[in-house]
Design a binder for these strands. Structure first.
Length: 518
RNA sequence: GGGUCCAUAGCUCAGUCGGUAGAGCAGCAGAUUCUUAAUCUGCGGGUCGUAGGUUCAAGUCCUACUGGACCCA
């Protein structure tokens, strides 16, 4: 019997499909969708607004979960994420962004029509607004006894599996909303990102920094060594590039008199895609006049510790493997993070003293002698070779926070030379878990040295290092109007969030990472 | 650029030696007034990523392509 009744409903649809060819291939999902549209149409027939514009709530679910038993007149709204129908008693679970609450409907506890409507027309995924009183079930769960409810919108497609969630990486990235609906871990991660940004912004504001915005669309890519995205500006008929860093604009502002300035800067680098590089990412940069890199290191330690404490509640971060086993614990709580020069570090890890290797050729020879080979070895200048060498032999070993200081000058064209040793610059990086989290230095404020250094970069560029920096006359012009001593600072926010949320891929810290179209 | 792996129902996954497709959840019908991944009975749902090839026979083997994951340089 039931069987026959069953087959009558879907049947017409199928016959139609057979007769009318143009009807698109019948995806099975269409059946689930059709059922839900039908429910919506029934609701409309019953005079229920199917996309109502408003429901007055007295509490969010997070707040409602703190209410005392017996509280009357509570009005809450949310998405139905579970429904357990026991005949004359229905339990369901509602969720909104920050909380969740169980509701219950008793057949003799509300209008029979409403009870039937909930039973028959409400699907998992739909939104409802409920009014009632708070009580505790026999099993002890705080619950809203629904006295009336309003249908607040239909989900035409089913939600992913309630227990396993969405696992497929591609689906999670392409349809992040599903990841957010179903995976609590994803919600927590993105809320933590927001909290990190908010905490850092407040900390900087509280220390008298000014937040500014500088151009994303520019005529010259500067401030970092990277390939830019280019576009065409129609009105001016010129080539433009998306910024690769906000650095030179923020420093122009210091020329203009800002002495503490920062920007959360979306930057774009047209380079290889891998788990630790996004093409579209967020960098926080700040510049502080009258500071040197030592002052900046102290401030960095305070800022980073404060942020981690606020965001996670502690100073340690656990890194886990695929099975959830803790592989390492990063400790940010150390009294004063250790400082090590690039020279000391490389010497310790492979025996090469970079100070003794004064040019690219001799350094290359020393590396080959140790059987250390890196990409494009024969075209890179000395600075870039040092950098590659460091990344190969040393960086992976740096786990707990450490300040790596005094990088080669020719790797840092915008940084100030060290007074005692002009072959290195007054620069530091905060390295954690083998990742560069912060890059900062005492800024080069001498316009003549700056010109010479940028000309040297142009030479490297001509020799085949396509990451070498471009010469930026407009920035040199600004510099020639006079700069105070400055220390500047940059942090990859995506990377920092990945670090403290235990993610290996930066795409898990970005809501909608770019994907190739399907 | 070179290599390895993955793609099966809306979701999570099985699928043996090549013999024509399975489960759980979700859905539908029914039962059920305290559930918590509710339970119980019954039912529907598939161009096995796409296109070729091998074979009597392909989800399974081969090739290419598409999308994804990872490793190396």
């Amino acid at each position: 019997m039931a069987q026959q009744e069953q087959s009558q409903k879907p049947q017409p649809q199928k016959q139609q499909g057979d007769k009318q060819k143009p009807q698109k291939q019948q995806q099975p999902i269409a059946e689930l969708r059709r059922v839900r549209i039908e429910k919506m149409e029934r609701l409309r027939d019953e005079g229920v607004p199917v996309w109502p514009e408003r429901f007055e709530r007295t509490h969010t679910l997070e707040k409602a979960a703190d209410l005392a038993e017996g509280t009357e007149g509570v009005r809450i709204g949310g998405r139905v994420i579970a429904k357990r129908d026991m005949g004359k008693l229905i339990f369901a679970k509602l969720r909104d962004f920050k909380g969740g609450l169980q509701i219950s409907l008793r057949k003799d506890g509300l209008d029979p029509e409403l009870f039937k409507r909930f039973k028959k027309r409400i699907d998992i995924g739909d939104h409802v607004g409920c009014a009632g009183r708070i009580y505790r079930t026999e099993k002890g769960e705080l619950t809203l006894e629904v006295e009336s409810f309003e249908f607040m919108g239909k989900a035409l497609r089913p939600l992913p599996e309630k227990w396993a969630g969405v696992k497929d990486v591609e689906t999670r990235l392409r349809q992040r909303y599903l990841d957010l609906i179903v995976n609590e871990e994803a919600r927590d991660r993105f809320r933590l990102r927001t909290s990190v940004v908010r905490t850092m912004r407040r900390y900087l504001d509280d220390h008298d920094f000014e937040e500014v915005e500088t151009p994303i669309l520019a005529t010259k890519a500067s401030g970092a060594m990277a390939r830019p995205f280019t576009s065409h500006h129609n009105a001016l008929d010129i080539e433009v590039t998306l910024r690769i860093a906000p650095e030179t604009y923020l420093k122009r502002l210091v020329v203009g008199g800002y002495d503490k300035v920062y920007e959360f800067a979306r930057c774009f680098r047209n380079e290889g895609m891998d788990p630790s590089h996004l093409q579209d990412f967020t960098m926080l940069e700040y510049y502080c006049a009258w500071w040197n890199y030592e002052d900046n290191m102290r401030f960095t330690e305070e800022l980073v510790k404060h942020t981690i404490k606020e965001a996670t509640g502690g100073f340690t971060v656990e890194r886990k493997d695929e099975d959830g086993n803790v592989t390492r614990t990063l400790d940010f709580g150390g009294e004063s993070w250790p400082r090590v020069t690039m020279r000391e570090l490389i010497q310790r890890d492979c025996g090469i003293d970079i100070t003794a290797q004064e040019d690219a050729a001799s350094l290359r020879a020393a590396m080959i002698e140790q059987d250390i080979r890196v990409d494009k070895m024969d075209v890179l200048g000395r600075g870039a070779l040092v950098d590659q060498l460091y990344k190969k032999v040393s960086r992976p070993k740096l786990i707990d926070p450490v300040f790596l200081i005094q990088h080669p000058t020719d790797l840092s064209p915008l940084a100030r030379r060290n007074d005692d040793d002009p072959s290195v610059v007054d620069r530091f990086q905060l390295v954690v878990n083998g990742w560069e989290v912060v890059n900062a230095y005492s800024e080069l404020v001498d316009p003549l040295d700056q010109r010479a250094r940028l000309e040297e970069q142009a030479g490297l560029r001509a020799a085949g290092d396509d990451e070498a920096m471009d010469l930026d006359e407009d920035y040199l012009l600004a510099m020639e109007h006079g700069m105070p001593p400055i220390s500047g600072w940059g942090m990859g926010i995506d990377r920092f969030v990945a670090l403290i949320t235990g993610q290996d891929s930066l795409r898990e810290t970005v809501l909608f990472p770019l994907m190739r179209p399907e």
